[in-house]
Write a protein that binds this DNA or RNA. Structure first.
Lengths: 122, 122
DNA sequence: TTATCATTTGAGCATCTGTTCAGGAGTTGA
DNA sequence: TCAACTCCTGAACAGATGCTCAAATGATAA
């Protein structure tokens, strides 16, 4: 494993383009950053966050139960769930009239869990 | 460790308020969800994400070097950094004319690292 | 001092977001 | 068939967001 260099010099007083370029190569690409930002953006709304943490606890919930956990209309919940489903953050299954939502994968669960721990005793 | 119950019944056809309430108690509170959402929201912008991942790699960078890593003005970078600093996501130190930014704590680094791994081979 | 550099601040503005409202689609049971 | 129920879709709109521009602050050097 390579030690991380600290870039001390600003390009104007001392170009140091080489180090900046070297760092840039090991960086996430702008495209990766955009995809990561998109993931975080979807978690970064109070309503969606509440829905996700409800699913983290309950495992699986239908829309009408999810609506109980937040303070917006069922329509708003549906819109929120569509965004999360399209992004692959949650998955759904129909059973009769109801549609049950769950977190899509273990990575999402880890992310939510780590963040919650961070907030509670970080 | 307690098994997670699946809530099958919608409140209208069969109230089941008890199970919903029990789940709600173990939930993050709306206030916690709001704080978590705020954290994610700040990571959920392409410019800020690029800056944060640059800091994750480089350890510490001045504003002028950070400006090189994104495609916006130095003013926009400064605005972005202020938001991150105010939220305690990054920290800064002055050295001469320059101000160096770094990730504030290990939790933030873990969060960024986990997310990146999620995207790359998730 | 004066000039220059690195960074910040505040204003203005176009764009994006999340909500509600009204209506539609799919499912169940009478 | 019909009505009731669960959930979704599209439109419209207030409010938030992120950018640039212009100007200010703090630090170094002549």
């Amino acid at each position: 494993m390579e030690a991380v260099a600290r870039l001390d010099a600003c390009t104007t007083t001392e170009p140091d383009e080489a180090r900046v370029a070297a760092t840039r190569d090991r960086l996430v690409t702008p495209e990766e950053a955009a995809r990561l930002a998109e993931l975080f953006r979807l978690l970064g709304d109070p309503t969606r966050a509440q829905l996700l943490y409800a699913l983290l606890e309950a495992g699986e919930l239908c829309v009408c139960d999810l609506t109980e956990t937040v303070d917006v209309s069922d329509t708003a919940v549906s819109h929120a769930l569509r965004l999360l489903r399209t992004a692959g953050i949650v998955a759904s299954r129909r059973s009769g009239r109801m549609i049950y939502y769950r977190l899509a994968d273990a990575h999402v669960r880890m992310l939510l869990d780590l963040s919650r721990e961070h907030l509670r005793h970080g």
